[in-house]
């Protein structure tokens, strides 16, 4: 990645929800942009169609899957998060879904998500850091629910293919009381 970067300082207002200032990539690599976008679109599709095994294979061995609560840059080692899974807990989550007796996903939620606003972040490692926004329409036995989030990924090339080392999903309403969220977000 280029070292040609610009830091975008956000205003202080709502920092709790927008999150800390980030260093965004200023340069543009169309090939990488396309590859990363296709990877994240595929991840979204695997989540939407509940292809649990294929989704689990996207993760690296040191993966971290984090869905914070009550803010954006909370300390997950001190504060409650909706999801704070290491690789083995991701595997447990998948094993539970695959039993067919995860009642909140039996029948599974019908889902379609739209992903947009891709922006690359400066990275001081070989990992590719990218942010995007997601809107998810869910319908299940309860009814219809809209979800919206800002996502942040660290992607890594493993044996030539991209893998997820880190995925953080910041639900825009994560300080409010929300309905059950048992599909893969």
């Amino acid at each position: 990645m280029s070292t040609d970067v610009a830091e975008i300082e956000g205003p202080d207002i709502l920092k709790e929800w927008v999150g800390k200032s980030r260093v965004y990539e200023k340069s543009f690599n169309p090939q990488l942009y396309h590859e990363v976008q296709q990877f994240i679109f595929r991840e979204a599709r695997l989540q939407d169609i509940h292809d649990y095994d294929a989704w689990e294979e996207l993760w690296t061995d040191d993966a971290l899957y984090w869905v914070p609560a009550n803010g954006t840059d909370t300390d997950p080692e001190k504060q409650m998060s909706l999801i704070y899974d290491n690789r083995s807990r991701i595997a447990l989550r998948i094993r539970q879904l695959k039993t067919g007796r995860r009642h909140s996903q039996t029948p599974p939620s019908q889902l379609a998500r739209v992903i947009s606003n891709f922006e690359f972040l400066a990275s001081d490692t070989d990992d590719i850091k990218v942010m995007c926004n997601t809107q998810i329409f869910e319908t299940n036995l309860r009814g219809d629910t809209m979800w919206a989030s800002r996502n942040e990924y660290s992607l890594r090339r493993v044996d030539g293919a991209l893998r997820m080392a880190y995925k953080k999903v910041v639900l825009i309403n994560n300080n409010k009381a929300i309905y059950t969220l048992s599909f893969l977000v």
Binding site: V67, A69, M80, S81, L82, I83, Y84, R89, L92, R93, Q96, R102, H103, S104, I178, Y179, T180, L181, S182, V185
Partner: peptide, 14 residues
């Protein structure tokens, strides 16, 4: 606790 409870918890979602 994070594994068990809350909207995405292994127990409380169900």
């Amino acid at each position: 606790t994070m594994g068990s409870v809350g909207p995405a918890g292994f127990l409380l979602a169900d």
